[in-house]
């Protein structure tokens, strides 16, 4: 049996996950990375994408927005604005958000104060749709 470590996902609204897991794979800013027990201390930015964890025979897939992951010896904490289990995603809502964000982006200059946020929304919607396949 592999070693376990504590894995948590917290958003401003709720603590989505808090459990002992064996392995976590997360979408880092510079590419996907995996975490096993005893990983070196590590703090990274996350981009929108799909995060998965494995705990025994149980696996979970969660779509996350932009945020941070803090990995320490016995614990991994993911701080994100948005996190949903794949089963919770509403495809039509995500589609709608994507269309809205794309329209907004087309009308915006890249130095607009809201540009980055709209881009994040778009990426999140895309990640949600991709996870739903």
């Amino acid at each position: 049996m592999a070693e376990n470590f504590l894995f948590e996902i917290v958003t401003p609204y709720r603590k989505l996950v808090s459990k002992e897991v064996e392995e976590v794979t997360a979408p880092g800013e510079l590419g996907e990375f995996g975490v096993l027990a005893g990983h070196t201390q590590y703090l990274t930015l996350l981009k929108a994408g799909t995060l998965s964890y494995k705990s025994g025979s149980e696996t979970g897939t969660i779509v996350v927005g932009r945020g941070y992951a803090e990995v320490s010896h016995d614990k991994t904490v993911v701080l994100v604005d948005n996190a949903d289990y794949v089963s919770e995603i509403d495809v039509s809502a995500a589609q709608e958000e994507l269309t809205k964000a794309e329209t907004a982006l087309a009308a915006m200059e890249p130095d607009d104060i809201n540009y980055q946020r709209t881009l994040d929304t778009k990426e999140l919607a895309e990640a949600r749709l991709a996870a739903k396949g």
Binding site: G28, T40, Y42, L43, T44, L45, Y68
Partner: peptide
């Protein structure tokens, strides 16, 4: 933490700027 330094990705400045 012991002697281990925390690794930042992309860099501690970038992480701080976004935090």
């Amino acid at each position: 933490e012991g002697p281990t330094e925390i690794l930042y990705e992309p860099s501690s400045e970038d992480v701080l700027a976004s935090l």
